[in-house]
Every structure is written in C-alpha cells, then in structure tokens.
Amino acid sequence: MDQGAEGRCWHCSRRYEDCEETARWLLDRIQCPPDIAIICGSGLGLLAETLSSPKIFNYSQIPHFPESTVVGHSGQLVFGALQDKSCVCMKGRFHVYEGYPLWKVTFPIRVFKLLGVKVLMVTNAAGSLCETYRPGDLMIIRDHINMPGLAALNPLRGPNDDRFGPRFPSLWDTYDRDLRITALEIAQKLGQANLTHEGVYCMVGGPNFESVAEAKFLQKLGADAVGMSTAPEVVVAKHCGMRVFGLSLITNRVAQAYETQESVNHSSVLEVGKQRSQLLQMLITDLVRSIQFKVENQEPAA
C-alpha cells in the first residue's frame, strides 16, 4: 500500500474515532441519549428554547466540533425533552461557504448516529423559485437537488466507513413519506394549509444569492426553493440509516427578471424567521409528538 492510500485510510479511521470521542464526551454529560435530532436554520433557533430540562453546550466546548460563524446561528447543542421525546437541537449549522470541508459540515450527523439518533429533522431558510410561494410560507421538502453533489462535492466522497453506512446509499426515498403526510395534516389542523406546500429544495454553494440566470436555470431543473445548506446533512443522515424530515421557511422571492426591484439580504431572511418562529415551533412540536418508537429494537415505527 502506498503512503497516499495509507494516509487516506488512516484519515477515514481517524474521523470515526473523532466522532466516537465526541459522542462519548456528550454521553458522559447528558442524562438520556437523544432519539431525535433537530437542525435549526437561520433565525429558527428559538425552537431549542422549548426543550424541557435543557443541557446546553457551546460548540467551542465540544471536542472536534466545528464553530458556526454565521449571524443568526448561536452555535449551541441543546439536549432535552420535547413532547416526552429525548431530543437534541443544533442552534446553528455549518456551511461549505464558511470554509469547512463537507466531512466537517456533516460531522454532527455522524456523532448523532453514534448517540443513537433515529430521526433527523432539518429546517432551513430558503428563497422561492416557485411563483405561488410567498415569503413566510412553509415548504415541506419532498426531494432535493444537490448541486455541489452533482459536481462531486459530496460528504460521502472518499473511503467508505461501513460502520456508518453502505458505499452506495439510495436517495430515492430520503424524505420520509409518513412524516411528510403527518406534517401536512398538522399544518391543516393549525389552519395553515394555505401557506404550507410540498416541494423540491435545491442546494447551492453560496454565500452569494443567486443571479437571475442561475435562478431561471434552477427553476427549469424542477426546484421550488433554493438555499445554501441541508443536502449534505441529509445525505449523511440517509447513509447512517436515519429517517429524515425537511422543512424550508420561504424568506424571499428569488429574482428571475432583470427588471425586478426585489432584493434580498441576510437581515431580511432573519426577520422572516422571527415572524414565523412560533408557527414553526408548533408544527415541529406536534410532529415530534406523533413519532413512535418500537420498544424492542428502538427503531422508529411508521
């Protein structure tokens, strides 16, 4: 074996050991391992404050954990109970545009796998490519287009570690159908069916917002909303055998005409997040309540 190959294999093994060390560090400090992990997108971190008996860790405290550098991302891991379910919330995620490699962006997901997490709920702020979506609407993610992944920027790139999952995972059923149906029913019960949609999320690299030509291109591909996150975490969660639920808060319309006067900035994204935070909390809370786990093998039941 040449030195390059040996180095790559050592690095892959080292990542597993790092995840294992982080998981052990957390397990030594929490009372109950989480069954559900929730990633809170831009401006959506208030959900973590609803957990009862919270145990909070700054990312800087946690061994091998990256640190969030984005405004609106607090950079905390919060463990606690939500609707009598053991949960962990990420108040802030990591992005490629911050300079992190994808294996580092998705490091928390693999740690969650080792903690025993079975369901990943991921939220994000996204721009609308669909003419019928308006700022403040919710989009339950039915599928995604991973633009970086199509260009070989994939978090599963490199030697596969079978301890996490298979070499070639299928993504055709990534976003759990039962959770999507339940979420739509909850939105209807909350009287928000008119602003809740189901659609396709497209991830781009960022940090710039899309050009008009790019927006038109993405719409032709079949994307309903676009953002700068989510796909890497979801790919790794699927690789790790987790059920996945995704929810986008539509914060702006993506300009698709040069004559438009509409403009978007990060501050306006955060403002829409604040306005819809209560609705998001109610929907996610009710969805968590609906999840049942089989006692015998601790796998989630449909």
Rank of each mutant, 00 (worst) to 15 (best):
M203F: 13
G4V: 03
V70P: 05
N252E: 09
K274P: 07
G191Y: 04
K113H: 14
D18T: 09
P135K: 07
G149A: 03
T251Q: 08
Q298M: 12
R157W: 14
T22M: 07
A183S: 04
H197Q: 10
V122G: 01
D143I: 01
I56V: 09
D178G: 08
Y175A: 06
D143W: 04
L138K: 05
V212S: 05
A183Y: 03
E98T: 01
Y133V: 06
E185G: 10
T123G: 01
D84M: 09
V295T: 11
S53L: 09
G165Q: 04
D176K: 10
L279I: 01
E210P: 05
M282Q: 12
K238E: 15
R15M: 12
R134M: 12
C32K: 03
T230Y: 06
G80V: 04
V212F: 06
K118W: 02
H266M: 06
L171I: 13
E296R: 10
Q256A: 11
V200L: 07
C9R: 11
I56G: 02
Q281Y: 05
K91D: 01
E131Y: 14
V96M: 15
K85C: 14
L102H: 08
N194Y: 11
A126R: 00
I284S: 01
V244C: 13
I30T: 10
S263N: 14
F168Q: 03
N252Q: 08
P159A: 12
G205L: 13
G4Y: 02
V88M: 00
Y133I: 05
F65Y: 12
L26F: 14
K113T: 06
N58I: 02
L26C: 15
K238V: 15
N297P: 08
L283W: 01
Q292W: 03
